[in-house]
């Protein structure tokens, strides 16, 4: 019978948590319910959460709309390639910043951090000229380059914080046994850093998958567009079929779900790491 008072004591916390969870999940439920309503041109108020005659028509229409599947493949290519490149390069850079002493180390790192302070929209016109100069406009590789480059500073910063708190002793042991720094990096640092790498991968992937402004600015060729643009196109100038927009957004969420749940067990551990160091 000791259980009851404990539950009683904790119940305000649970009530608050459940209320918070409901607030967080409400827009999502609303999105699902709207995506099941055909011909929804008006955002209803108050929202009707259970559709009167639900149908999957919107999902089929969105999926089969102009080039949607092509855009999906483009997005997948750009997001996966950029994530791999960005995480690999920033892990190497972060290792160097965390472990080696070299001239100008702190300065370089501060400059790297300074990049974080510059909002992307300021540099979009210079970037546009650069891409034009390099002949990478209208190219998915151009997007990969830009995405990777713009994400490096944050990822390096996060990973350096994590690498610095790994014990030096392990690495010294490898050196004594005749291993190289590359061995340390590949066989010690990376395996020990899965939580941090998972966190950085998830954030990067989500950022690349959702990115809209640069993709819209640098790509004119309809065949090279990515998913966020396809979704924005469902919003008309005068009337928007919201069911279609929400259905398309839900389809776009699937890869993020897969990615997130696949890496979730590492992710939660990774979140706290930045809290202590960095």
């Amino acid at each position: 019978m000791r259980l009851r008072p404990r539950i009683f004591k904790k119940s305000p916390v649970y009530v608050a948590l459940i209320a918070g969870a409901l607030v967080m999940i409400f827009p999502f439920i609303w999105m699902i319910s709207s995506s099941l309503k055909p011909n929804l041109y008006v955002i209803e108020y108050p929202p009707q959460l259970i559709p009167s005659n639900p149908s999957l028509e919107n999902f089929l229409e969105a999926w089969n709309a102009n080039n949607f599947q092509q855009y999906f493949r483009n997005s997948a290519f750009v997001a996966i390639t950029s994530t791999l490149l960005s995480v690999t390069i920033s892990a190497m850079a972060a290792y160097a910043f965390a472990r080696f002493k070299f001239p100008g180390q702190e300065t370089t790192f501060y400059v790297l951090l300074g990049v974080l302070m510059v909002p992307n929209i300021i540099v979009i016109v210079p970037q546009f000229f650069l891409m034009k100069f390099l002949g990478l406009r209208n190219s998915l590789w151009g997007l990969v380059l830009i995405y990777t480059a713009t994400s490096l500073s944050l990822n390096t910063f996060l990973l350096r914080g994590f690498f610095e708190q790994l014990p030096h002793e392990l690495e010294e042991a490898v050196l004594i046994d005749g291993g190289s720094y590359l061995t340390i990096f590949a066989n010690v640092i990376l395996p020990l850093s899965t939580p941090a790498l998972a966190t950085v991968s998830i954030f990067s992937f989500m950022g690349f998958w959702d990115e809209f402004v640069m993709a819209l600015t640098f790509i004119d060729d309809p065949a090279k567009r990515t998913l966020p643009i396809a979704i924005a196109l469902f919003q008309g100038q005068h009337g928007t079929q919201w069911g279609l927009v929400f259905a398309a957004s839900l389809i776009a969420l699937i890869p993020i779900f897969i990615f997130f749940f696949g890496l979730q067990k590492y992710f939660v551990g990774g979140l706290t790491t930045g809290a202590f160091k960095g």
């Binding site: 016109v125 546009f128 406009r137 060729d221 309809p222 924005a232 196109l233 919003q235």
Partner: peptide, 25 residues
């Protein structure tokens, strides 16, 4: 004819960038 559908809300901005960059349609 290669037509390009551009979301209305961003159309004006994209045209300005393209004109400045010499890549207008």
């Amino acid at each position: 004819v290669q037509d390009v559908n551009i979301p209305y809300d961003q159309f004006h901005q994209k045209l300005l960038t393209a004109i400045a960059g010499g890549t207008a349609p």
